[in-house]
Design a protein around this nucleic acid. Structure first.
Lengths: 120, 120
DNA sequence: CTGTATCCTTCGAGATACTG
DNA sequence: CAGTATCTCGAAGGATACAG
């Protein structure tokens, strides 16, 4: 067999990886990072609604997973840029596909919800 | 403009839709449902580690969003089949791409984590 | 078989304030 | 600018029992 694990198995490494990806903020960060490095506060401003704490935590997790890298520039005050790694770049296509699906099918989902709620 | 909203805006419908997708169990269910209808307990058995309660809740949300449909067969005891809707089927390619990414890049992520932890 | 109801715990997120 | 440190709070999830 090609793979020892699959996503349907409990407590397998694959599931742990999918868990990390199944995170709203992580997806938004990866999507935003596509194409260009972005600074901390720039991300904070662009990704509306994320708190400083959660942004910091999520960036740390993504860096630990090898999906993004953190570059520190000794300016005053200090500048920090986050960039997709080559591993992270292999994900962007899928991630932005998900984001685009959400944008394009929002209306259909909303309509389905209203129909569902009307029945109940 | 083509879209009034994008995923980076707070409290926009697109974000709400992405929120729903950014759910580990929802992704696993959608992935499992690709290709064939599946019964409740069958899903429960296949998606290892999910509780009855969470499975039920997640299925209800996915049905409300118009991504899956629920068919009741008046057998004794009753049989319930869950199937992807046509809207849901437009998502499967992306969802399974995510799952496959996790399976294929698990090793790289694990290695990155170990390298990160070794540095710290 | 396919769920719902309840209890209980814990984990995560928001708010706020502070630091290098 | 780029974070860390607390604190509090609510919601999500597991376990268990029960129901149609």
């Amino acid at each position: 067999m090609k793979h020892a694990y699959n996503v349907f198995e409990d407590r397998c490494p694959t599931r742990l990886v999918l868990d990390r990806l199944a995170d709203k903020w992580a997806l938004l960060i990866l999507d935003r990072l596509e194409g260009e490095p972005v600074r901390f506060n720039h991300l904070r401003r662009d990704i509306k609604g994320i708190s400083q704490k959660v942004l910091s935590q999520t960036l740390k997790k993504l860096e630990r997973d090898g999906l993004i890298s953190r570059a520190i520039f000794p300016t005053v005050p200090v500048t920090v840029e986050y960039t997709l790694t080559s591993l992270g770049r292999t994900l962007t296509e899928t991630v932005s596909a998900l984001a685009h699906w959400a944008e394009h099918n929002m209306d259909a989902v909303l309509a389905a919800q209203q129909a569902y709620d009307a029945r109940a």
